[in-house]
Design a protein around this nucleic acid. Structure first.
Lengths: 128, 128
DNA sequence: TGGTTAATTTACCATATAGTAAAATACAGA
DNA sequence: TCTGTATTTTACTATATGGTAAATTAACCA
């Protein structure tokens, strides 16, 4: 299901064979046979992977005699980059928090050593 | 199958419901019921989505009385960002650095070859 | 204790995905 | 026109995915 653009893109990227194909195409246009060579799977299987990539707009295909050259199309990758960038702020901020938390733990440890007293630790985090 | 980390992450992200859940969690930890509220699907369906996200390491879950608070875990998103950033060089025509990255990628390709399901396939592919 | 709320598990269904082998198509060139 | 090469299509299989309804577990509360 989930036929939206981004889902189709992520779905196409969720396979190591297909990502390897994209990596290969990043260094230049090539044929189906050439793309298939590194993999221990049949040619029809590779054809299917190419269809998935094409449907996701990650590759385009030409026609040259009996070859069907494939080339990388970057727009969906740009969309992925844009999507994931939204979260960069989150994980950067979260790492700040983590660092602060670890500092607090160190401080607490020191205090425990000093006062020889265990205070209530690990309070349940409240929602929101 | 493709159980490698990045494939699991992309696969988890290839669903608009799950991406919406992540977006909600970016603004704070919350419960399953709260997460489920915006969607026209049953609670078990949401539970399944959460399992997918948890298995991909995109969320972690706590226990607070009868609630299982979920929170965003950003590391897989960082990995996605890192992966896709390599292609920015491509769409910005920075081929020099991209080629260095492609060299590094050869070992991933080797992994794919190793984990291929059918090992007996005969394939005297003579093309380079 | 029993009732309520939160969430998961179970059992099931429909559809999608990833692969195969074998046949078919498309084109080049002698 | 016949042959070889490149690629796809067809038909089939096994497994994964995303959903449901109903039952179950877990914890709080009166």
């Amino acid at each position: 299901m989930s036929a939206d653009r981004l889902s189709t893109t992520f779905s196409a990227l969720a396979d190591p064979t297909r990502r390897a194909i994209l990596a290969r195409l990043a260094s230049g246009e090539t044929t189906v046979n050439d793309l298939a060579a590194p993999f221990e799977m049949t040619l029809p299987a590779v054809t299917k992977h190419l269809k998935v990539l094409e449907r996701a707009g990650l590759i385009t295909r030409g026609r040259e005699a009996q070859w069907r050259p494939c080339r990388l199309a970057a727009q969906p990758l740009r969309d992925v980059a844009e999507w994931v960038e939204q979260y960069r702020l989150y994980w950067e901020q979260r790492f700040d928090r983590l660092e602060r938390y670890l500092d607090e733990l160190q401080q607490e440890k020191a205090n425990v050593r000093k006062t020889a007293k265990y205070t209530e630790r690990s309070k349940r985090r409240t929602r929101t």
